[in-house]
Design a binder for these strands. Structure first.
Length: 499
RNA sequence: CGGGGUGUAGCGCAGUCUGGUAGCGCACCUGCUUCGGGAGCAGGGGGUCGUAGGUUCAAAUCCUGCCACCCCGACCA
């Protein structure tokens, strides 16, 4: 009965637990290139499910997909001042287009061919605003061309010094929407709409309740006039920025000189937004729902929603065929009803070993099908989230599985919401904030007089940052004093440690 | 780039102090018995010990250089 878990308990070392879950659930693996990870099939399938669902939501809100190049002329990055400051320090640069072989025998190797140096270096996109706005300049002439509502699914590269699988990697997958509008009002409405798309998407697919709000100036996207964010709480009470939507004003339109002619014949710069979510969402999933046994997946994103484990006794050969036929019939019916079902009929593993494996991998619902169940016309079930095993009648198993999975999703969402609310505190003084944060972590909603230097000082002292000025809370600032400076409060700010 | 640490089989490690012909656990392969919560037994495959040089009859082990990675700081979705 030796334990083979290989997963460090959360209480012992949360960071190690996170890495252990990823390894044991076979979501990702480290590649030979520092900071780059391989998305293994089980991890990529989660991304696939997220992508399919979000893509539908983007199209339902009027967006279309396109694809822009990976390589961007280096000079493009310097066209928007804020933007260059934000990204220049983490760009991969391509300087040559050919290698040559040098040395012989043991010292044989390749090196960039000095004769093949590019006249202008290329950067690997850290984000695509510059390339896209260059192209929009060619496509937009008239008010009749607006709005432009384009999204792309792509990889981007940001050369980070400190990396962590899914949360921060040198290369990651995401979608980035880039829109162009005739008016400020329309662009702001678009940025707000997309934030809401992300918020509901996160609840429906990830069972993650999100706090929505506006970023402080310090945390704002490089080149944006306003950044909206969705923030989630992880199990260690740290915050994770899970998606952003930016109102870019006319910054990029001016930098790339993108104007349109109005109905009255005037030339105006267009108004812009950009917004994105990435494979970081998978990190959020893991850290919000999983436990010391391994991954826990909400049914909508689970690559396998139901695993069926047939059980038989070999001596009694008659058992096996009956059980397998019965199990296969359940699998076929559930698949026909639209569920993602896997039957694990491997002969060399005992049932217990299979249970542990599928629990590590986060399968929401397990069915154990043996001779006893065949007799009863039932399926013996266990939920990944715990509780006693229970029987489902096979006669209406499609409906009952749907109900069980729906309940599980709602429970996950509700538990996450309760945990977040229990760990969110309102304080009035900086001393109370420091004491409480050090003691029990969590989110802190405080009256705040917006001040970048004060924000930096607080980060320096406590490592907490402003996650956002939450929507729906701003009225509370009225008539109050900043918890740090004592000046009149201009906002309600949500402070927390963050990834 | 500063301080600390580690490189030995796919993974995790012992062996290094005190030099003597490569070892353990898991994983993998074969066979038999097992199978309702991580099976047992038997047999088997796999490593130029990070790398380059030096000392020695003999180097994973001692010496020197280099490289890589990890942790703590500085930078960050």
């Amino acid at each position: 009965m030796a334990t083979q878990s290989g997963i460090t308990p959360r209480s012992e070392d949360y960071s190690q637990w996170y890495l252990d879950v990823i390894r044991e659930a076979t979501l990702a693996d480290y590649s030979p290139v520092k900071g780059s990870m391989v998305l293994r099939p089980h991890g990529f399938a989660i991304w696939d499910n997220l992508k399919t669902d979000l893509d539908r939501r983007l199209k339902e809100t009027g967006h279309v997909n396109a694809y822009f190049p990976l390589f961007i002329p280096m000079s493009f990055l310097s066209k928007e001042a804020q933007h260059v400051e934000g990204f220049a320090k983490e760009c991969a640069v391509v300087t040559h287009h050919r290698l040559r072989a040098v040395g012989e025998g043991d010292s044989a190797r390749v090196e960039p061919d000095p004769e093949a140096e590019l006249a202008e270096p290329l950067i690997v996109r850290p984000t695509s605003e510059t390339m896209i706005w260059h192209m929009y300049g060619k496509w937009i002439d008239s008010y009749r061309d607006l709005p432009v509502l384009i999204n792309q699914w792509a990889n981007v590269v940001r050369w980070e010094l400190k990396t962590r699988p899914f949360l921060r990697t040198a290369e990651f997958l995401w979608q980035e929407g880039h829109t162009a509008h005739a008016t400020r009002h329309e662009a702001v409405a678009e940025a707000e709409q997309m934030l809401e798309v992300y918020r509901s998407f996160a609840e429906d697919m990830l069972a993650l309740p999100m706090i929505t709000g506006v970023k402080s100036e310090n945390e704002r996207f490089a080149g944006a006039e306003e950044t909206y964010t969705i923030e989630a709480m992880m199990q260690n009470t740290w915050a994770l920025q899970s998606g952003t939507s930016h109102f870019l004003g006319q910054n990029f339109a001016k930098a790339f000189d993108v104007t349109y002619q109005t109905e009255e014949g005037h030339h105006e710069h267009v108004w812009a937004t950009s917004w994105g979510v990435s494979t970081r969402l998978i990190g959020a999933l893991i850290m919000a729902h999983s436990d010391d046994t391994g991954l826990v997946l909400p049914p909508p994103v689970a690559p396998i929603q139901v695993v069926v484990i047939p059980i038989w006794r070999k001596k009694d050969g008659s058992d096996k065929q009956v059980v397998v036929d019965y199990a296969q019939d359940i699998v076929d019916r559930l698949r026909a009803a639209g569920f993602r079902v896997h039957i694990d009929a491997r002969e060399k593993l005992k049932p217990g070993a299979k249970y542990y494996e599928w629990e590590r991998k986060g399968v929401p619902l397990r069915m154990e099908i043996g001779p006893r169940d065949v007799e009863k016309g039932a399926a013996f079930c266990k939920l990944r989230t715990g509780g006693d095993k229970f029987n489902l009648d096979v006669r209406d198993i499609e409906e009952s599985v749907a109900q069980v999975l729906k309940n599980m999703h709602e429970t996950l969402l509700e538990n996450a919401r309760t945990f977040r609310d229990e760990n969110t505190h309102e304080v009035d003084s900086y001393d109370a904030f420091k004491t409480s944060l050090a003691d029990k972590g969590g989110f802190y909603l405080v009256p705040w007089n917006a001040d970048n230097d004060a924000e930096d000082a607080i980060k320096e002292e406590t490592k907490a940052t402003i996650r956002c000025y939450p929507f729906g809370e701003q009225h509370k600032a009225e008539g109050r004093s900043c918890f740090y400076s004592g000046k009149p409060a201009t906002h309600m700010a949500l402070f927390a440690r963050a990834y």
